[in-house]
Computed example of a mutant assay.
Amino acid sequence: MRLQGKVVLITGGAGGIGRGMALAMAKEGAKLVIVDVNAETGKATEAELQEITEALFIEADLMDRASLPRLVDQTIERFGQLNVLVNNAHASRQHSFMETTEDDLNLSFGTGFYPTFLLMQAAYPHLKKTEGTVINFASGAGIAGNIHQAAYAAAKEAIRGITRVAANEWGVDNINCNLISPIANSPGVQQWKEAQPEAYATMVEKIPLRRLGELEEDIGRVAVFLASDDASYMTGQTLMVDGGAIQLR
């Protein structure tokens, strides 16, 4: 029970990678607060988690910046502390560089970068008390510069930048700030596999481990590690949980 007694807040926690991390952390003893815009899946995931641990679902639109501090407040009201903030939620559209619009940028930054930044600010006083952890999400789209992902790549690299800044500023408070850059077997990827099986097979062939990461067993377990005391001497790092697709130097 590596996370026994810890309280974790996860955005986008009702499905995909967010749900996988929530399940992995719950099984290690954490209490969970999951935030999602989808009430139906949020309540279903909350019920699933409550069979394992204490859990709370909060329905929220992360584009509503003024409401973001309230997510932290509700976590403190329910559980009295916050140990781990996981900024996982992000929405974007894929277009070529020249076809990317200001609306595309606003969507990517509005659901990804700004909620990450503002929730980190709101969570800081509580993470300082618990000597807690921030887990943010990077992407190979930004690191490698994937085509047709200008808006997504820009927001993800901006998140990497502020995570490193916070790691340097908050190290004195014993707050760890790291990133996960995953390739995951998400529902969206499964839909893409069904629609374009040849493109999917080509993508998998380029991954050294020849498979996509499982949501709970692969991505979730790395999140457990970063949230645990085992990662207490790591900060400012990007962990490539992508089967070796990108090998940083």
Results as ranks from 00 to 15, higher is better:
24 A>L: 09
116 T>C: 13
184 A>T: 11
154 A>M: 15
18 G>S: 03
90 H>F: 15
209 L>R: 11
102 E>Q: 14
74 Q>S: 05
70 R>I: 05
151 A>V: 05
48 E>K: 12
26 A>G: 15
20 G>H: 08
119 L>T: 01
24 A>W: 11
183 I>V: 12
60 A>P: 03
193 K>Y: 09
10 I>G: 09
41 T>A: 11
177 C>V: 15
207 I>Y: 03
27 K>Y: 03
144 A>W: 07
246 I>C: 03
245 A>H: 14
240 M>S: 10
137 F>M: 11
89 A>I: 08
128 K>V: 13
78 R>Q: 15
123 A>T: 08
235 T>L: 05
178 N>V: 03
152 Y>K: 04
6 K>Q: 12
143 I>V: 14
130 T>E: 12
45 T>C: 14
248 L>R: 10
112 G>L: 08
240 M>K: 07
171 G>W: 10
195 A>H: 09
150 A>I: 11
123 A>D: 04
219 I>Y: 03
54 E>I: 01
156 K>Y: 09
27 K>T: 06
58 I>K: 01
72 V>G: 00
195 A>V: 05
9 L>K: 00
173 D>Q: 10
222 V>L: 14
214 E>V: 01
172 V>C: 06
1 M>S: 14
56 L>S: 01
81 Q>P: 00
76 I>E: 00
236 G>N: 08
98 M>Y: 12
39 A>G: 09
102 E>S: 12
168 N>L: 15
29 G>N: 12
60 A>T: 03
53 T>C: 06
68 L>I: 04
181 S>T: 07
107 L>G: 10
219 I>C: 05
149 Q>Y: 04
176 N>A: 10
98 M>C: 03
40 E>P: 01
108 S>L: 06
167 A>D: 04
169 E>A: 07
67 S>E: 11
138 A>E: 07
185 N>L: 15
167 A>Q: 06
126 H>N: 11
213 G>T: 11
228 S>N: 05
114 Y>N: 11
232 S>N: 12
218 D>C: 08
75 T>F: 01
212 L>D: 02
78 R>H: 08
116 T>H: 13
